[in-house]
Amino acid sequence: MSFGTALITGVIGSLLIAIVTWALSRPRRARQRVVAALGWLWAAGVVGLTFGTKSGAGQAFNMALLDLGNPADRIDFLLNMTMFAPAGILLSVLRVRFRFALLGGALASLVIEAIQYVSDSGRTADINDLLSNTAGCVLGYLCAGMITEVMAHHAATAPTSYVDRARRH
């Protein structure tokens, strides 16, 4: 599947999810509807980026851990983290527990790596991808959680606005 096909599938699918969930008012919380639409778009992008390119130099499986001396390995690790961070952010918006975000990121990555291994996609199933994808999901989850906490603390300690004071009198 090419990245362009995945992008079109993601956009159309997200729009359909948004329209259908809005029309049915299901799920009831708008946050869940938005996460469903954005989650579909993210998943389509991941599929396009993962299976739309070749890599691995013909090797089916790599169990060698990250070579920190190799700049290409470090960049690949960071790019994979970046690709999975939105999943963690979306899980945080849904207010799932940390262990579910960790498990969700690991399982999603494991599925991708298993498909790469058993299919003739030309991609390498790589332990480093599994680690970096999971780490990206967890990092996105933690960053979104910290931002939510800071915003909640700021809202609780913010001084009353002039408009609010005027309404009371």
Results as ranks from 00 to 15, higher is better:
V20C: 03
T53H: 14
S161D: 07
T124C: 02
D67S: 15
L7W: 14
R165I: 08
S55E: 13
R29K: 09
V93M: 09
V163R: 13
P27Q: 06
G104R: 05
R28E: 04
S121R: 04
V150I: 15
T53N: 07
L66N: 02
T124P: 03
G69R: 00
A87H: 13
N128C: 09
G145K: 08
D126K: 01
L107Y: 06
F61G: 06
P27L: 01
T160L: 14
L90E: 01
G104W: 12
L7D: 06
F61K: 03
V35M: 00
R95M: 02
G4M: 04
S25H: 13
I19K: 01
L41K: 03
I8P: 04
R123Y: 08
A64D: 04
L90D: 01
P159W: 12
F100H: 12
I115V: 15
R168P: 02
L16Y: 11
G52H: 08
A156F: 03
V20F: 06
S55H: 15
V93Q: 03
V138T: 08
R165F: 12
I19S: 03
M63E: 14
A125Q: 13
T148H: 09
A37N: 03
V34N: 03
L139H: 02
L38T: 08
R29N: 05
T9L: 15
F3A: 07
F98M: 12
V20T: 14
T50S: 06
G45V: 11
A114K: 04
Q32W: 07
F100P: 00
R95F: 06
A44L: 12
T160C: 02
V93E: 03
F51L: 09
V111H: 03
L107E: 15
S14Y: 13
F51E: 05
F51I: 12
T157H: 14
D120V: 04
S119P: 03
P27C: 08
N70D: 15
G145Q: 12
S25M: 05
I147W: 04
S55R: 14
A106F: 15
L65W: 00
H153S: 13
E113I: 03
G136F: 13
R33V: 05
G69F: 06
H154F: 08
V138S: 08
M151W: 04
N70Q: 12
R167C: 00
C137F: 08
I89P: 06
G136Q: 10
G88R: 00
L68E: 11
T157L: 11
T5R: 15
I8F: 11
